[in-house]
């Protein structure tokens, strides 16, 4: 039985350590940019799926400073890896091929670096997110998903929407960390207002938006700017790029 489990784990693991897809560079208009200007994104490679629990378990096993039992409170909140039953075991609430969540930005950064990669920038992430998903009204589907509660056990990283460029679960499974998540919605007033908290709640901020009907993107930018790097949110994971 144990052997079968181990084999399954390995299978899950190899399925989960999916390769990357090359994202051809190009130009797009992010929701918030420098005066609604288009942004150029260079070619990069992105993980097909978010990082799985099994992937992250292998990482903490070889980088003990990122174990739940060892991690510094300035790098991750107390809820870090909350769904795991122990610092070195996943348990029933964290499927091996499910996305790792309750991870801080610092932990996500360290994971990607350990693979010689990094987190995607907001622009890179949104650029990929702006691609069509075959047969799906993307914005409506995303809003439907945003309105659903997070399930107690998150399903496989392959269960989200599949984009036309081969990227899976960018929408429809979890939220994802970005490298410069906390630079969203920085206003011209930032020099006077260091914490920028006002800008997070000010409705006038939307006057700068490129497409006021892209409500899903509003939600993402709003969510990102509410985060701090040590936060460990229940439905927030990540994927890496190169």
């Amino acid at each position: 039985m144990k052997k079968i489990l181990a084999l399954l784990l390995i299978l899950f693991h190899s399925a989960a350590t999916a390769s990357q897809v090359e994202i051809k560079g190009g130009v797009f208009t992010p929701l918030y940019g420098s005066a609604k200007k288009t942004v150029k994104v260079s070619t990069f490679s992105m993980d097909v799926t978010p990082v799985t629990n099994a992937d992250f378990l292998a990482f903490v096993n070889s980088h003990s400073e990122w174990r739940k039992s060892a991690v510094s409170p300035i790098f991750a909140e107390a809820d870090y890896l909350r769904r795991w039953i122990s610092p070195s075991e996943l348990g029933p609430d964290a499927l091996p091929d499910g996305p790792v969540v309750n991870v801080s930005w610092f932990a996500a950064k360290a994971y990607c670096e350990s693979k010689g990669m990094r987190l995607p920038t907001v622009n890179e992430w949104e650029y990929v997110a702006s691609r069509p998903i075959p047969g799906v009204d993307v914005r409506k589907a995303i809003l439907d998903w945003y309105s659903e509660p997070t399930p107690a056990v998150l399903p496989s990283v392959n269960s989200g929407f599949k984009s036309s460029n081969g990227i899976v679960s960018l929408h429809g499974l979890i939220w994802e960390w970005t490298l410069d998540f906390n630079s969203a919605m920085v206003t011209g007033e930032s020099r006077a207002d260091g914490s920028l908290d006002k800008s997070f709640f000010c409705g006038a901020g939307s006057a700068n938006a490129a497409d006021k009907s892209d409500y899903a993107a509003f939600l993402r930018f709003g969510f990102r700017s509410s985060l701090k790097a040590k936060y460990t949110v229940n439905n927030l994971g990540f994927r890496c790029v190169k």
Binding site: F106, N182, V186, R191, L196
Partner: peptide, 26 residues
């Protein structure tokens, strides 16, 4: 990533706006 990490640790925000210009906390 390293610059962003340090800035996060001291609660300092910044964002590049155009070539060589930044908005940032103070």
């Amino acid at each position: 990533q390293d610059v962003r990490e340090l800035s996060s640790l001291i609660d300092f925000k910044y964002k590049q706006i155009g070539k060589g210009d930044f908005e940032h906390s103070f």
